[in-house]
Amino acid sequence: MKRALLISVLSLLAATGLRAQNVALGERVPELKSVEWRDGAAPAAAPLTYIEFFHSSNSEALRSLDRLKETVEALGGRLRAVVVMRERTERALAMVAPYRSGRIGVAYDADGRIFDAFGVTYVSFGVLTDAKNRALWMGNTLRITPDFIEQTVQ
């Protein structure tokens, strides 16, 4: 009985771990085809894209967006950012509005397809991709800086 319970628990943990991350470094990431762009506009093209998964309930959400905005501005035309969110509440929209620019776009993922395709289980989480849509780095957005991205891209 104990052995069967242990096997069940380990199987559940293994399955959860496998589903927790659908992105592998160096591999292509899911495309953002099913999103709806706020104001109907994607951010300007750039050699690097940072995809930020956002939820207003995250206590670090604004700090992450501040860091992302600083990084995008510092790298100029080399980096664009896409903030992917499921929410359309007034609170969430008010939180992301100051960050929207020509280099930072906001995308709605109302049905959760993009969150699921990337295997996102926590926020702040982001993925840095190259021009060929391959994952270069992924993790907590608070870790990124212009220098960090420069080192990662080399």
Rank of each mutant, 00 (worst) to 15 (best):
D116L: 13
I104M: 06
S101T: 08
G102R: 04
A81I: 04
M85K: 14
I114F: 05
R88D: 11
R80E: 08
D109C: 00
S101I: 04
R91P: 11
G105R: 07
G102S: 03
R103C: 04
R78I: 07
R100S: 14
G119T: 01
L79S: 08
R80I: 14
R103S: 11
P98T: 01
I104G: 03
L79E: 10
A97T: 13
G77E: 15
R113I: 08
V120H: 09
D109E: 07
T89E: 04
A117R: 05
A117L: 00
Y108H: 13
A110N: 12
A81D: 03
D109Y: 01
T89A: 07
A94V: 08
R80F: 06
Y122E: 13
E87T: 01
Y122F: 11
A110Q: 14
D109N: 03
A92V: 05
Y108F: 15
A92Q: 05
S101R: 02
G77H: 11
G102E: 14
F115M: 03
G119M: 01
V84H: 06
R78G: 07
R113Y: 10
R88L: 12
I104Y: 04
Y122T: 13
I114P: 10
R86Q: 14
A97Q: 12
G77M: 09
T121N: 12
E87K: 01
V82T: 07
A92H: 09
A97Y: 12
P98Y: 03
R100F: 15
M95T: 12
I114N: 04
V96S: 00
V106K: 07
E87S: 05
R91T: 12
S101A: 00
E87N: 01
R100V: 15
M85E: 08
A117G: 09
T121E: 10
A97I: 12
Y122I: 08
L79D: 12
D116C: 07
Y108A: 09
A110D: 13
P98M: 01
A117Q: 04
T89M: 09
Y99T: 06
R100I: 15
V120W: 06
S101N: 01
R86H: 10
I104P: 03
A92D: 11
A107Q: 04
